[in-house]
Computed example of a mutant assay.
Amino acid sequence: MHDLTHPIETGMQTYPGDPAVSVEPVATHETDGYRESSLSMGSHTGTHVDAPAHIVADGRTLAEFALDTFVRTAQVVDCRDFDAREAIPADRVPAVAPDVDCLVFWTGWDEHWNTDRYLDHPSLSPAAAQRCAEQGLAVAIDTLNPDPTPSDRASDDEPDGFPAHHAILGAGLLIFENLRNLEAVDERFELQAYPLGLDGDGAPVRAVGR
C-alpha cells in the first residue's frame, strides 16, 4: 500500500483564495495530561475529493455516494511530458477496460508542492475532460485542479471558468485532486480515497494506492 496523500499542516498550499490551513495545539501532555489540536481549513484542503455539489447547484453531495464509490479501479495516464500550463488533449485519454472506473493523470507536478510553480501545472483540456465523462470515469490528478489554476503566468488563450470540473462533476462523477507519489503505483491499481464524514461539496481524503 502506498500513501498518495499530502500531510495536512499549518500554512500548507491551498487553491488561491481558499481558507488558510491551521493545525494548532489546544492541549498538551505537560499542561493538561493529554494532547489535542484545533483544525481550521476549507473542505478542499490538500488531497481531497470534489463532489458534484462543488460546481453543480443541484449536484450530489458526498453523503449521497455509497462508501464503495471511494474505492476505484484506476488506470494511470503518464502526462509527465507536459510542461507548465499546457493542456492535456483528448487524444491522451485512453479507451479503458470495462472494470476501470477512474483515470489518474500523472503529471509529476507534486514535486512542486508548496511552491509558486505548483500553480502552473498542466491541466485537462475541456475535450479531454468531456471524453472522461463520456466513459463514466472519475478523474484523479496530482495537481491543484484539472482546470488551469489562476496565476500571474496564465495566458489569454486558457479557458475561462471550470470546464473540466463541469464536464466531470456535471456527469455525476468525482474528482480527486492533489495526489502525490504516483511513481510508486503500477499502471493499474486500486485507489482508496475515503473522505471525512462531511455531507457537502468536498472533503480531504487519505488516498492510498494498492
Score class of each variant (00 low, 15 high):
Met1Lys: 14
Asp3Tyr: 04
Thr10Ser: 13
Met12Gly: 02
Met12Val: 02
Met12Pro: 00
Gln13Glu: 11
Thr14Tyr: 04
Val21Met: 07
Val21Asn: 11
Ser22Met: 08
Val23Gly: 14
Val23Pro: 13
Pro25Gly: 11
Val26Tyr: 00
Thr28Leu: 03
Glu30Phe: 10
Glu30Leu: 14
Asp32Gln: 10
Gly33Lys: 08
Glu36Trp: 12
Ser37Thr: 06
Ser40Ala: 14
Ser43Asn: 15
Thr45Val: 06
Thr45Lys: 00
Thr47Ser: 04
Thr47Ile: 01
Ala53Tyr: 15
Ile55Gln: 10
Ala57Asn: 09
Asp58Glu: 15
Asp58Val: 05
Gly59Asp: 02
Gly59Tyr: 01
Thr61Phe: 15
Thr61Ser: 15
Phe70Leu: 01
Phe70Arg: 00
Arg72Thr: 12
Ala74Leu: 00
Val76Phe: 02
Val77Thr: 14
Phe82Leu: 11
Arg85Asp: 03
Arg85Pro: 00
Ala87Asp: 13
Ile88Gln: 00
Ala90Leu: 05
Arg92Ser: 09
Arg92Lys: 10
Val96Ile: 12
Val100Leu: 05
Asp101Thr: 07
Val104Cys: 04
Phe105Met: 06
Thr107Leu: 02
Gly108Ser: 04
Glu111Cys: 03
Thr115Ser: 15
Ser123Glu: 02
Ser125Tyr: 06
Ser125Gly: 07
Ser125Met: 02
Ala128Gly: 06
Ala128Arg: 05
Ala133Glu: 03
Glu134Asp: 14
Ala138Gln: 05
Thr143Trp: 07
Thr143Ala: 15
Leu144Lys: 08
Asn145Glu: 14
Pro146Cys: 05
Thr149Gly: 03
Asp152Tyr: 14
Arg153Phe: 06
Arg153Gln: 08
Ser155His: 14
Asp157Gln: 06
Phe162Arg: 09
His166Met: 12
His166Lys: 08
Ala171Ser: 15
Gly172Ser: 04
Leu174Ile: 10
Ile175Pro: 03
Phe176Thr: 01
Glu177Gly: 03
Asn178Ile: 07
Arg180Glu: 08
Leu182Pro: 00
Asp186Trp: 02
Glu187Asp: 15
Arg188Asn: 10
Phe189Leu: 09
Phe189Gly: 10
Glu190Thr: 12
Leu191Lys: 04
Gln192Cys: 10
Ala193Ile: 09
Ala193Pro: 06
Tyr194Leu: 13
Tyr194Cys: 11
Pro195Thr: 04
Pro195Ser: 03
Leu196Phe: 11
Leu196Ala: 14
Asp199Ser: 09
Gly200Phe: 07
Gly200Glu: 05
Asp201Ala: 11
Val205Glu: 01
Val208His: 06
